[in-house]
Design a protein around this nucleic acid. Structure first.
Lengths: 188, 188, 188, 188
DNA sequence: GATGAATGAGCGTTCATTCAT
DNA sequence: GATGAATGAACGCTCATTCAT
């Protein structure tokens, strides 16, 4: 594994446990079994590590979505698939779920809009899909921009909640229920 | 206004602007036009201020709910009313909305369960109502505990999002849509 | 009791327990069941309280000594009597013993030389007596200035030690032994 | 010189001048020509520095005594030698003398008993020697525990006093007199 | 005189960041 | 690239002192 991602993984673990501001760079270095100084070879600052965690996950999802868009499945089905992917990711990575949820507060501005490149964030992708879906008459006449974000956050928070509440066992049931909830909530 | 709440208000304002960890106690004191030392007459620590912000809002909602429970409206209607109240509160208090959302990450454990008295938090109240509603056959057979939290967070995050996205104008429309979304999502 | 001495007594008690620097003026006021502000009517500063504790005890001893000097007992006998008086005082006032010992470190400059009036401190009185005693040939040819201080501090520290070591029972025996020790130590 | 002891030396100097509570950690760092933060690499807290000063001197004396005990000199002679060593140490280290005396108030409990290892403090060593000496019939029937402490403090305070009173010149004379005083005081 | 809420200078401690090795 | 000792700006909190009531 390249060292930058080794640091990202340790950081995710520690930040999940302690929260970003309580996390010391030293602790991340310790966990990664490297020296503090080394962290600063790969990252400009502590904040930069957090950005990279978000960015990595974002890149991963965007790549998945790009792949998905090549197939011509209907938009509502696509949202389902993305949510499912997101859920699976977070289940396999409880620490990541915690960090994205806890430290993503106010993410809208800081993390997604703050993206340097012009790739859209997940809410923007949802937005586009909801618009298409609306055009096709699959869903009600909702404010697609707002609902895109609502759906995004519902997914993230629920995933986190299931971890915290120790309901890993009910995970897939809960996921199915949530997807049904969302689809029922927006469809005609 | 009593000085403790004066500090709470200034703190809410500054924390909304800067985030909790970037907020200096001195800045809160400056905003409240008092000395730093005075803050520590009313609060044991900086953390204590944040707790009080959550606690105050929680108390307010719980009081509203207690009042509501005296009337015998059906549980689903009640959830609507509570969401509406919550939305109105946050609309009138954009700073509070931001703080509750941003700093409430991981709130589940720290802020609501951490309540000293045995009064239930809002998610617990929603849980109870969903259970009643399910018994009455109003809603589908969902995991009421999880959905109680989902509904709670959706409300909070949406309120915050509307502020951030500068859609104050669409506020009430969005609210109506969200309530419909939720009700459609869970009803039979 | 006049309020200044009421404060002195409370201060002595708290300082004995906590040490001077760890003692809060508020705690003294609480113990005296008065307001903090009141302390500052009678004392210019916190330091001033400590000075007054030393000064009071010093005045008391000096008065005793002045009384003693009217009788024409020999100087060595006089030192014995003064030590005995000092011991009795400290036994009846364990807190005072602790404060004089603990906070009197470096007293020489700060507390005794710092005396505003020209009344001599106890070491100076001992010095005078040792000189007389030496002239009379009662004691060896010692550096009377140094021994005056040695005797003074031995008395004070021993009194304190007996308190700390919980040997109140051996108090008088120990005292007798100490006086014998001193007299044997300096006599011809 | 290792940095921990460099800090100890600067601390001893500043604390001797200002007293422990008036000493700022920054001032110690300045004197040692290091940054404040560096102090906290080697010490957990300001208090910890003071503890280390006491501990260091204690270790030194204990090592000297252990060496001494290998030779089979009589106990009374041993006490003399230890006092002599202590005096020489303090003469060469006036700042240390001041700190040990000034800040050692209440040392009995905090500094010596607080020692983590089971090595005895100097008073305890004196105690043991006085007991042996008493058994041999060299000294009077005194309370050896109390006198052990008395002798310890007399030594320390006298050393300090000689510094303060600016009698460095009379140092050795005074020392000889003090040893005679103590021996005369306790012997049969 | 008495009160005690308010003050704010001051200090201990932390920790992200640097840089000589 | 890797190290980790050193740095020092920054901040939370304390508490002696004041002063309007």
């Amino acid at each position: 594994m390249n060292k930058k991602d080794l640091i990202r993984l340790s950081a995710t673990k520690i930040i999940a446990e302690e929260g970003f501001y309580r996390t010391k760079v030293q602790a991340i270095a310790d966990d990664a079994e490297i020296a503090v100084g080394t962290v600063y070879i790969y990252f400009k600052s502590k904040d930069d590590i957090l950005d990279y965690i978000f960015e990595s996950q974002h890149t991963k999802i965007v790549e998945y979505i790009e792949e998905l868009e090549k197939t011509k499945i209907p938009p509502l089905e696509m949202i389902k698939k993305i949510l499912k992917y997101h859920f699976k990711e977070l289940k396999n990575n409880p620490d990541l779920a915690k960090v994205l949820s806890q430290e993503g507060g106010g993410s809208i501005e800081n993390k997604l809009n703050g993206m340097k490149d012009d790739s859209f964030g997940v809410p923007e992708i949802f937005h586009r899909m909801l618009d298409e879906s609306k055009k096709k008459g699959e869903i009600r006449d909702i404010d697609t921009e707002i609902f895109a974000s609502v759906i995004f956050f519902v997914g993230r928070e629920t995933a986190y909640m299931l971890q915290v509440k120790g309901k890993g066992d009910r995970y897939y049931t809960a996921f199915e229920e949530l997807v049904t909830f969302i689809i029922n909530g927006i469809k005609k």
